[in-house]
Amino acid sequence: YKIYPYDSLIVTNSISVKLPKDVDRTRLERHLSPEEFQEVFGMSIEEFDRLALWKRNDLKKKALLF
């Protein structure tokens, strides 16, 4: 996945969300650098992957990456 800054990946309720063209809309968190991922989620990507799907989705919603 290509890395993008968190600010360019957050999704708000506005209709005209302009995400970069090559971003996987269903896995926005994968486009964060490991350092920024840790900062946003408070855990590593590996720890995040071990969580239940509902928990990952809940965290993504709170981080505006859903």
Rank of each mutant, 00 (worst) to 15 (best):
E46G: 12
K21D: 15
Y1A: 10
V23A: 06
A52E: 13
R56A: 06
S44Y: 08
D22G: 08
S44E: 10
P20W: 04
I3W: 06
K61G: 05
D49P: 01
F48S: 00
Y1R: 10
W54N: 12
S44G: 12
Y6F: 03
R25I: 15
D7Y: 14
H31N: 03
L32D: 00
Q38Y: 14
L53R: 09
F37V: 02
D7M: 15
L19T: 07
E36W: 03
S14K: 10
L19A: 06
R56C: 03
F41I: 04
G42E: 10
V40A: 05
R30W: 03
P34E: 12
K21C: 14
S14G: 14
S8V: 14
E46S: 12
F41N: 00
E36T: 07
M43D: 00
E36I: 06
D49Y: 09
I15A: 15
L28V: 03
S44N: 15
K21T: 13
K21R: 11
K2A: 14
P34A: 13
K18R: 12
D7F: 14
E35A: 11
L19G: 06
D24V: 07
A52Y: 07
P5F: 03
R56G: 03
K55P: 03
Y4A: 02
D49R: 05
V17W: 03
M43F: 05
L9W: 01
R56Q: 13
S44W: 06
E36F: 03
R30E: 02
M43Y: 04
M43N: 01
K60F: 02
K60L: 05
V11L: 13
E46L: 12
R50Q: 14
L59K: 05
F37N: 00
E47P: 03
H31Y: 09
S14V: 11
R50I: 11
L53F: 10
N13M: 08
S8Y: 14
S8C: 13
M43C: 07
R30V: 05
F37P: 00
K61E: 07
L32A: 00
T26A: 13
P20K: 04
N57H: 08
Q38D: 11
E39I: 15
K18I: 12
A52N: 09
S14Q: 13
K55Y: 10
K21I: 13
L64D: 09
E46F: 11
R27A: 11
I10T: 07
E29C: 02
Q38V: 11
F41K: 00
K2F: 07
E47Q: 12
N57V: 13
S16P: 12
E29H: 02
E35I: 12
P20F: 04
V23G: 02
S14N: 14
L53S: 10
T26I: 06
K55F: 09
E29R: 01
K62D: 08
D24M: 06
I3R: 05
L65Y: 02
P20M: 05
P5T: 07
Y1D: 07
E39P: 03
I15E: 15
L65Q: 01
S8K: 13
R56H: 02
I3Y: 09
D58A: 14
F41S: 00
L65V: 03
L51F: 06
R50M: 13
P20V: 04
R25G: 07
F37C: 03
F37R: 00
R25V: 15
K18Y: 07
K60P: 00
F37S: 00
V40C: 06
L28C: 02
R27V: 07
K18A: 14
E36P: 00
L59A: 06
P5V: 03
Y1K: 09
S14P: 14
L64R: 14
P34W: 09
L64F: 12
F37A: 02
R25N: 07
L59Q: 03
D49G: 08
E39Y: 13
E36K: 05
S16E: 13
D49H: 07
R56I: 05
K60A: 02
K2I: 12
I3D: 03
W54V: 10
K18G: 15
I10E: 02
F48R: 00
G42Y: 08
E39G: 11
Y6M: 03
D24I: 07
D58V: 12
K2T: 14
I3G: 03
M43E: 00
L59I: 05
S44I: 09
V17T: 14
L51T: 04
L53Y: 09
L64M: 13
E35T: 11
D24C: 12
L32W: 01
K21G: 13
E29Q: 02
W54I: 08
E47F: 09
P20G: 06
P5E: 05
Y1E: 07
K21P: 15
E47Y: 09
N13E: 11
R56M: 06
D49W: 06
I3C: 06
P34N: 10
R27Q: 11
I10W: 04
P5K: 05
H31S: 03
S33E: 04
Y1T: 11
L9N: 00
L19V: 07
G42H: 13
M43I: 07
V40H: 09
D7A: 15
E47T: 10
M43Q: 05
L51R: 03
K21A: 15
R25M: 12
N13S: 13
S8R: 14
R50W: 06
K62Q: 11
E39R: 14
E47L: 09
D22R: 04
L64W: 09
S14A: 12
D22E: 08
K61V: 09
P34V: 15
H31K: 01
V11M: 11
L65K: 01
V40E: 02
F41P: 00
Q38W: 14
E35G: 09
L64K: 14
D24E: 06
D58R: 11
Y6T: 00
F48Q: 00
L9P: 01
E35C: 08
V23R: 02
D24Y: 06
F48C: 01
R25D: 07
L9C: 02
I45T: 07
E29W: 02
P5M: 04
Q38C: 10
D58E: 14
T26W: 10
S8Q: 15
N57M: 11
E46R: 10
S33R: 05
D58I: 13
L32I: 07
E39S: 13
I45W: 09
S44M: 11
P20Q: 04
A63I: 03
F48K: 00
N13L: 08
D49K: 06
K62A: 12
E35K: 14
L53H: 10
K18P: 14
K62S: 09
F41R: 00
A63K: 09
L64I: 04
V11S: 09
S44H: 11
F41T: 00
I15S: 15
I3A: 05
T12G: 13
E36R: 03
L64T: 04
H31F: 04
D24R: 05
K2V: 12
R27F: 08
V23Q: 02
I10G: 02
V17K: 13
K55D: 09
V11W: 08
K55A: 10
K61P: 00
K61D: 05
K55T: 10
A52C: 12
R50S: 12
F48W: 07
S33A: 11
F41D: 00
L65H: 01
E35S: 10
R27L: 08
R56D: 00
H31W: 03
